[in-house]
Amino acid sequence: MKLYKVNNIPCNQLIITGKGNDKLWDKAVVLTDFNSPWEDIKHTKTEFKALWDRDYLFFCYKVTDATIHINNTDNSFNSINISDRVELFFRPNSSLNPYYCLEIDPTPRLMDFKALPNKNFDFNWNWPSEDLIIKSNITDKGYSVEGKISIPSLKKLDLIHNEKIETGLFRAKYYKTKKSSYEPVWITWVDPKTDEPNFHISSSFGVLKLESN
């Protein structure tokens, strides 16, 4: 499994703004190893960083993209589901029974749900709001999504084992077609080795390793 090292920082120091511009982010490993195994990616790049302290796991996506697509029909999951977004999936183990999904668009609207194998989704489940903070920022060059997840909530969901969190890192990028509709290209850190795009599968996950000082 691919492994990303999450460096440790002093507690209560990193400030979430949505821009990922806190100086402490300089301590993070920059992950740019994203691609689409199924289609060509055009004119866009994906960057991910993570840090942690005693209380929180921090994450930041920075997306280079001059043609952001956001469906503004309403604030429903249906609208988020057909917008550009970044995603984090967490699982206790490879059985995916269950796993937990955070999908965040550039505004940042959140689609969070619990899932079981074979894309059995429970949209009535939500990550506790007091344990998750997300912010975002949009520019003419792209967007960033920055957030923090409480360590206690990750532990309560049985997601940290031996300082490792099994995680999928993904992105959906919508391109306008010749028929003026929008179709997604699916971008991932880990190639799941599937013929068709599918992130809801055991082989799409890597590991976030919580490093000690």
Rank of each mutant, 00 (worst) to 15 (best):
residue 8 N to T: 12
residue 8 N to Y: 14
residue 9 I to H: 10
residue 10 P to Y: 12
residue 10 P to M: 08
residue 11 C to E: 14
residue 11 C to T: 15
residue 14 L to Q: 03
residue 17 T to L: 10
residue 22 D to T: 05
residue 22 D to Y: 06
residue 26 D to T: 14
residue 29 V to T: 13
residue 30 V to S: 02
residue 35 N to S: 12
residue 36 S to F: 00
residue 37 P to M: 01
residue 41 I to T: 00
residue 44 T to R: 04
residue 49 K to C: 07
residue 51 L to C: 11
residue 51 L to F: 13
residue 54 R to Y: 13
residue 54 R to D: 14
residue 55 D to P: 08
residue 58 F to G: 06
residue 59 F to N: 10
residue 59 F to T: 10
residue 61 Y to T: 10
residue 61 Y to V: 09
residue 62 K to N: 12
residue 68 I to F: 03
residue 68 I to G: 02
residue 68 I to C: 05
residue 72 N to S: 04
residue 72 N to L: 02
residue 73 T to A: 03
residue 78 N to T: 10
residue 79 S to P: 01
residue 83 S to C: 02
residue 89 F to C: 07
residue 90 F to M: 13
residue 90 F to V: 06
residue 94 S to N: 15
residue 94 S to W: 13
residue 97 N to G: 12
residue 97 N to M: 14
residue 99 Y to F: 15
residue 99 Y to S: 10
residue 101 C to N: 06
residue 102 L to A: 00
residue 102 L to D: 00
residue 104 I to V: 14
residue 108 P to S: 13
residue 109 R to C: 04
residue 109 R to Y: 04
residue 113 F to N: 06
residue 120 N to I: 10
residue 125 W to H: 07
residue 129 S to Q: 15
residue 129 S to I: 15
residue 130 E to S: 14
residue 132 L to Q: 07
residue 133 I to H: 11
residue 140 D to I: 15
residue 141 K to P: 05
residue 141 K to C: 13
residue 142 G to K: 07
residue 143 Y to Q: 00
residue 145 V to D: 03
residue 149 I to A: 01
residue 155 K to W: 04
residue 156 K to C: 09
residue 156 K to Y: 12
residue 160 I to P: 03
residue 160 I to D: 04
residue 161 H to D: 06
residue 163 E to W: 05
residue 163 E to P: 01
residue 165 I to C: 04
residue 166 E to F: 11
residue 177 T to V: 06
residue 179 K to N: 12
residue 179 K to Q: 12
residue 182 Y to M: 04
residue 184 P to Y: 02
residue 187 I to P: 00
residue 189 W to S: 05
residue 189 W to N: 05
residue 190 V to H: 01
residue 190 V to C: 05
residue 193 K to C: 08
residue 194 T to S: 06
residue 194 T to P: 02
residue 202 S to F: 01
residue 205 F to W: 11
residue 209 K to C: 01
residue 211 E to R: 09
residue 212 S to R: 11
residue 213 N to W: 09
